[in-house]
């Protein structure tokens, strides 16, 4: 296992933990800014991706970009699903509050006394 493979594995796991912990939107924005700037940089200087890839022991620049793409997709997926879970929870609370506030009573006159 090369140094870069270890690094990339650790960073994937770290991202997962970070996403689940932090609710800070600033962190996400900085990361997306970084991705955008990095993307532009690699487009303007295509050979730089290969240089960095050789430096960290991956070989091809395309592979480096591919790995980064996977990491950032994971980041996007986990942060979005965490957000969805929070929204779901708020929605549940709203639906519940509405239900509890509006009880309907069935047929109070027949059968048994109702308290």
């Amino acid at each position: 296992m090369s140094f870069f493979q270890i690094l990339i594995t650790i960073s994937i796991l770290l991202l997962l933990v970070l996403i689940n912990r932090s609710r800070a939107i600033l962190f996400e924005r900085m990361l997306f800014l970084l991705i955008t700037l990095g993307g532009v940089y690699f487009v303007i200087f295509p050979e730089s991706a290969s240089r960095i890839a050789t430096m960290v022991g991956i070989g091809r620049g395309a592979d480096l970009v591919f790995y980064l793409f996977i990491i950032f997709s994971w980041f996007w997926f986990t942060s979005t699903s965490a957000k969805m879970r929070r929204t779901d929870r708020k929605l549940t609370e709203m639906v519940r509050a509405n239900a509890v506030a509006n009880p309907v009573f069935g047929m109070p006159t027949i059968a048994k006394k109702f308290r």
Binding site: L91, T92, V95, R96, N98, A99, V100, N102, P103, V104, F105, G106, M107, P108, I110, A111, K112, F114
Partner: peptide
């Protein structure tokens, strides 16, 4: 059908699942 009986009925505005329905009942 439920309202033909002497019961209290709570209604969820959207479908949430059985766990959520139980907790709504507990809250009430």
């Amino acid at each position: 059908v439920t309202l033909k009986y002497p019961v209290t009925l709570l209604k969820h505005m959207i479908n949430l699942g059985q766990g959520a329905a139980l907790q709504t009942g507990f809250d009430y």
